[in-house]
């Protein structure tokens, strides 16, 4: 039988709740197999060449699923993958019910000035990222929007990593250093005047893994490259 595109998923999504349209995908909320589910649809980007578009879309769908599995195996919380359709490039993921982004959390906590809680959070993020890098997962798009915080009944909070579309597997300290550099810029531009908080994150990252010191060294190199670059024109 010739491969045909099923209309089932587009029809399903047309009735789902559109949460946001990111740079890569539309994100929906719906009930799927009886569970609250997030559907990530990597729809074709018409601005780019169809060959490039298909290649990127497929690669990112696959990488996202792979890295989630790899993280979960290592005990890093990430949403469960329920179902993947590679023809419509849709991933059906567990909805982390009752969570908020670390970004929103920092924004609201800074207003009420609970510096202890934020320090705890920064340290937790540093530890998780060290663990992720220990597994050679490079996230590729670290921002405080791509981390979710769920408060549990026992008062503890669970930190989830999401949005692994730009992730890949690499053991190179250079790649991991760039991963932190990307986070640093996103962090400091999203949350102005939080340099000490980010320092704390890096310290806890450095303390959490034997592999960390090589990565921090690369991070310093990458930063320097940025500052040294002549900016002509």
């Amino acid at each position: 039988m010739a491969q045909e595109k099923s209309m089932a998923i587009p029809e399903f999504l047309s009735k789902a709740e559109l949460l946001k349209q990111g740079a890569e995908a539309r994100v929906y909320r719906a009930e799927f197999l009886g569970k609250p589910t997030i559907v990530k649809e990597r729809f074709p980007k018409r601005y780019r060449h169809p060959v490039l578009d298909e290649k990127l879309t497929h690669r990112r769908t696959v990488q996202e699923v792979r890295s989630i599995l790899r993280c979960r195996r290592a005990g890093i919380s990430a949403p469960v993958v329920y179902f993947v359709d590679y023809t419509s490039h849709c991933i059906f993921l567990e909805e982390i019910v009752g969570s908020s982004t670390v970004r929103d959390h920092i924004a609201s906590t800074r207003q009420s000035d609970c510096s202890n809680e934020l320090a705890w959070l920064a340290e937790r993020v540093g530890q998780i990222l060290a663990k992720m890098h220990e597994e050679d997962v490079v996230h590729g798009d670290l921002t405080t929007s791509n981390m979710l915080l769920r408060h549990q009944e026992d008062g503890e909070s669970e930190l989830f990593l999401i949005d692994f579309g730009l992730s890949y597997i690499s053991a190179l300290p250079e790649d991991k250093g760039v991963d932190l550099y990307v986070l640093e810029k996103a962090f400091l531009s999203t949350h102005p005047n939080t340099e000490t908080l980010f320092e704390r994150l890096l310290k806890s990252y450095a303390a959490a893994s034997k592999k960390s010191s090589a990565v921090i060294k690369k991070l310093d190199e990458v930063r320097l490259r940025g500052r040294k670059r002549s900016m002509v024109g």
């Binding site: 696959v62 699923v65 792979r66 989630i68 599995l69 979960r72 469960v80 993958v81 329920y82 179902f83 993947v84 590679y86 059906f92």
Partner: peptide, 9 residues
Amino acid sequence: VCRMASKDI
């Protein structure tokens, strides 16, 4: 479930 969903890749 995660393993079932990801086994194709």
